[in-house]
Write a protein that binds this DNA or RNA. Structure first.
Lengths: 205, 205, 205, 205
DNA sequence: GATGAATGAGGTTTCATTCAT
DNA sequence: CATGAATGAAACCTCATTCAT
């Protein structure tokens, strides 16, 4: 870190922090829309209202913003899920409602992250650090999913909880993706309904 | 077609056909590994054992191979599924076995196509022709899925068959993806087993 | 204009303006010497003392510099003619002197533009925008020619003034071309003298 | 010549001669339409109905066809002029008619060569052999022009015959060019008429 | 001989990054 | 510090020419 000190600014002043945040936000949006490789630094800088030169005083390179965005993304996602889930009274909610609530939460979150997720799977394979980060975040999401599932008052059918959490997490993600992307020949409500049925009949006795 | 004649070679000689095939195969592999935008034509050509010049006498541009690969991909996938499914005796097979067979089929197919699918979701949004093609192929896959599900002798629980086929198709695809990609902290068999449980308990009474 | 902003630099700093000017000058020279298609962007950039990258931040593509050069060419030519002609006292000058002065003016102008004119005729046929521009400039040149001819105190012989202005304009241009290009087996003065004779005996009673 | 023997075929058989002729014709047309550098050998070969491979057994390289075309062009042009001029009875024809006839002759010739002439001026500067050839042909054309002019029964005004022949030759060429190219805002007849007036009033007492 | 497939140098253009002002 | 001008390696694509069949 000490040898980066003179190149990369660690923002301490308020303005500096806002600028960095602006860059991250701009990058996030563009990566989501067009993908990492299809977004260029000039565009990010412009969208953030700074010069290319400034961009490089906040981030060593383009990859660095991606990582920053990735961290934000993970933290945000978890926070949203937690916030949404904390609204629930686990004593009174029924199983379908619980699942539906989870699906809705992810769906809302997805709106902000549509497309970004897509890009992630590509980056995953081209950079070891990114891979590590993503694995960690994925794991956090899965664990959280598992915890929520277990909070329902009913017994879960499966004995392989670990595998189950993967299945549920991935399935919900996939369908949320379909709902978010596809121009919906099939109404959202119908897909959500079937999804909830599937998960409920799978998980609970 | 007549005005393309000048630029694009329609393979007539045996050698020519082999070359074109080699390019398509090489492109498929590279697109899968690194994505469309991260693969360059020189690499594709080199991997196919030909010069860049040759590449461009078979395809107008990089996008054109992508489309060719996409067509192959769709046709292959359907063919594999059909071949695999035709091995089944629908009178004697039980429901879990049927689903397991479907999952296995998709899994094997995926081996050839790992990562390619990933790239597709990005291309989907940036090219109208590709979008059309993919929608058509997706629809074909979904319909096929539906047909097979209905072949089981049992009654299906759901009344919204259309939505159900989307859910099942996407779910299986997603989990097959996870299995294929992730360096498997969790054993394939465990994931498959849970997946089958979920689908069976969802679909059948 | 706003959507070009991203790609094309609108020179603001002094340095930037000089660079753009250098590129235009270099392009002009090279196009004149070798023609548009035989000049490559690397050569233009090198001659202007900049990198290829810089070239492309000032012009969308090679065609764009050509158009810029074309506009400069037209404006310069008219300005030179006007400047030169304003030196004349139309009350005292005789007809031969007037024509000679016009020829000299065009001849001097040509020195800067030798060969460029040549290339124009090729571009004329392959690009609608260039065609429009050239037609407009040609017309301006012809009109100006006509005006000057009419300023002589004598009556013009011809009744078809429009056709006459075309003939004179083209003839002078053609001979000026010959004088500028050909390694002069025949002395400039002899050619100029005959040209002036021809035009004077044609135009004036 | 002896070391080329095994590479370039000197056509002896009838078919071979026809093929070579076809290539030259095709090249001529394409060079005229698009210019030398914008025409590629594949197109020429295709238009001539032969393979690229064959093209190269008739001509060492692309430049060689150009030179062949150039020779044909010059010979053809002279032949056309001679043929047309031989129709004239120099004893009875009047001066305007003579000039008009010359203009018409060149105009008809031009129809076949439009655009080719244009390209010539570019090639002129990039190849010494082509330069020599063109200078020779130009000279032949000019001399011929001079000869015809002198055949009129009247005395020519000018004393500098050499310069006069250049002036006339170039002027006629230029106006013929204008007539051939421009979408004629001004009717051909008007331009021709003024041109003839100019030349007659210049040349003859 | 003829064919057309293959080659690869060279041209156009993009963009992450550096650096002068 | 901030700016945006400049860099140049690398991507896409073309075409004159050679060569296997």
């Amino acid at each position: 870190m000490s040898d980066m000190e003179d190149k990369i600014r660690t923002p301490r002043q308020e303005r500096s922090i806002r600028t960095k945040e602006a860059i991250v936000q701009a990058a996030m949006k563009q990566f989501s829309d067009k993908g990492f490789h299809q977004t260029n630094t000039k565009q990010i800088a412009a969208a953030a209202g700074v010069s290319t030169g400034s961009f490089y005083s906040y981030f060593v390179d383009k990859r660095a913003v991606f990582i920053e965005v990735l961290k934000n993304y993970g933290a945000d996602l978890l926070a949203r899920i937690d916030a949404s889930m904390s609204e629930i009274n686990f004593l009174t909610i029924d199983r379908s409602e619980l699942i539906m609530h989870l699906v809705d939460t992810l769906l809302i979150s997805h709106e902000a992250f549509i497309g970004y997720h897509r890009e992630l799977t590509i980056m995953y394979h081209s950079d070891e650090e990114i891979k590590q980060l993503m694995d960690a975040q994925y794991e956090a999401g899965r664990i959280r999913t598992l915890e929520y599932l277990q909070m329902g008052q009913d017994e879960l059918k499966t004995e392989d909880m670990e595998a189950a959490s993967v299945i549920v997490f991935e399935t919900v993600s996939a369908i949320v993706d379909v709902i978010s992307f596809s121009q919906q020949r099939i109404a959202t409500e119908r897909l959500k309904s079937e999804l909830v049925h599937m998960i409920v009949s799978y998980l609970y006795k």
